[in-house]
Simulated assay, not measured.
Amino acid sequence: MQDSTALGEFLRTRRGRLKPEDVGVASYGQRRVPGLRREELAQLAGVSATYYTRLEQGQSTNASEAVIDSLARALDLNDDERAHLHDLARPAPAKRRRPTKFATVRPGTRQLIDAMGDVPAVVMGRRNEVLAWNRLGYLLLAGHYAFDAPDRIGDRPNLARMLFLDPHHRNLYVRWEEEALRAVASLRVVAGRHKDDRELAELIGELSMKSPEFAAMWSQHPVATCTFGTKYFQHPEVGDLTLEFEVLHLPGDSGHRVLMYSASPGGASEAALRLLRTRVSR
């Protein structure tokens, strides 16, 4: 994925969602496509229409921080989108051919999630690959997999791939489209930060080819860090669960994260999670 292409795509999608009347631009004549025209956005951002056009078409890759900030203000971007725009505008690092290392979870992290017996927990790499899970996390999300699947080089589970290509995992989510859009938005953030990640690009290419739904969502260029929220499950063994999730980023630059779930005390979801927990000791 070329960063200039992604930058232009992102700018077009955000320009397309702005209405002239919302930003004080007088609208004349029939518009063939929704949103602001390039020259209108350029005027709002204080740059020349020619320069903005080159930027959107990927013909200019050296925009200053000040120009990017001006575009972010003109496009009314939120904090996640603003950070993503800056990531896309930075030149990609020089390509280095290095052997791909099989990512592993730190022993201390594995010990930590194993000690959290009452909390479903999963350790993910930056591409949403599962590095480890505790028993309850495994039973909640992927009981149809082998428990040691994260330790296998050939068929390590990936939560994004499972969400779009694994019918068993997909059926867990009552609000699948909401969950899918959240996953795509998170992948967009990672892709913007790691333009030289070949494995990430291959994952995105695979999902785009095999899942029309992923391809459609990816083309909308959603962006969000998705570090907390609510997920709605329909589990084949314990029924419906409404669980809060939190994502904690581990120290260092590995991009490893711990995904944890919890249920409100005293509710039906806590009872269902407790029932699922009884399987851990079997």
Rank of each mutant, 00 (worst) to 15 (best):
G143F: 14
R170Q: 12
L131V: 00
L163N: 02
A94G: 08
R161H: 07
P107N: 10
A132T: 01
P167E: 10
N128R: 09
V119P: 00
N171I: 08
L88E: 11
I113N: 00
P91I: 03
G143M: 12
R170A: 15
N171C: 14
L172V: 03
Y138V: 02
D79E: 15
D166K: 01
D76G: 07
L85W: 12
E81V: 02
P107T: 14
P120I: 14
E178Y: 12
L172P: 00
D114R: 10
L139I: 15
A142N: 07
D79T: 08
A146V: 13
L85T: 13
F102N: 10
L88T: 13
P107A: 05
Y138T: 06
A115V: 07
R110D: 08
N134K: 00
A180I: 05
A132P: 03
N171L: 13
D118M: 15
D79H: 04
R90G: 07
A146W: 11
G137D: 10
L163H: 00
L131W: 04
P150H: 05
R106S: 14
R126Q: 11
R135W: 14
W133C: 06
D80Y: 01
Y145T: 11
P91A: 00
Q111K: 09
A121M: 08
R90N: 13
R98A: 13
R170G: 04
